[in-house]
Computed example of a mutant assay.
Amino acid sequence: MRVTKITIAALAVAAGLSLTACQSDGDATSRSDSSAAPASPSAHGGPGSDGSARGAAKASAGKDSGAGQSTGAGTGSDKDGKTGKTGKTGKCRTDELEVTAADHTIDGDPGGTVVVEFTNGGGRDCALSGYAGVDLRTSAGSLSARRTGEPASRTVLKDGESVAFGITYPVNDSGGSGVRVTGLVVTPPDETKSVSLAWPGAATLPVTDGSGSPVKAGPIGSAGQGG
Rank of each mutant, 00 (worst) to 15 (best):
G111Y: 12
A14F: 05
I220N: 00
D80A: 09
D173I: 06
P188R: 03
D95W: 04
F165Q: 01
F118M: 12
V99W: 08
A61R: 09
T208E: 05
E150C: 03
G130F: 04
R2Y: 07
G160R: 02
A67R: 13
P41Q: 06
A101K: 09
G183K: 03
A145C: 02
V181H: 05
K5C: 07
P110C: 10
I8M: 11
G66W: 11
G62E: 12
G66A: 15
G130M: 07
G166Q: 01
A59V: 11
S213P: 01
P206H: 02
G16L: 13
K58V: 11
A73Q: 15
A145P: 07
G46V: 08
S35H: 10
D95V: 14
G111L: 06
P188V: 06
P219F: 03
A21W: 04
D209E: 04
A132I: 01
G62C: 05
V171M: 11
T204A: 10
D109F: 08
I167S: 02
P170W: 03
D159N: 13
A67F: 13
S34L: 14
T187E: 00
S35W: 08
Q225H: 12
L17I: 10
S129W: 11
G201W: 00
A152E: 05
G16P: 01
G175S: 00
A164S: 15
G111S: 10
T7Q: 11
S177L: 04
M1Y: 09
G87L: 06
G227D: 13
D125H: 04
K5G: 12
D109H: 11
A59W: 11
G111M: 07
S35M: 15
A101R: 14
G66E: 15
T182Y: 06
V156G: 00
S144T: 15
C22N: 10
S65R: 13
S213H: 04
Y131V: 00
K58N: 14
V115G: 05
S139W: 00
K58W: 09
T71D: 13
L157E: 00
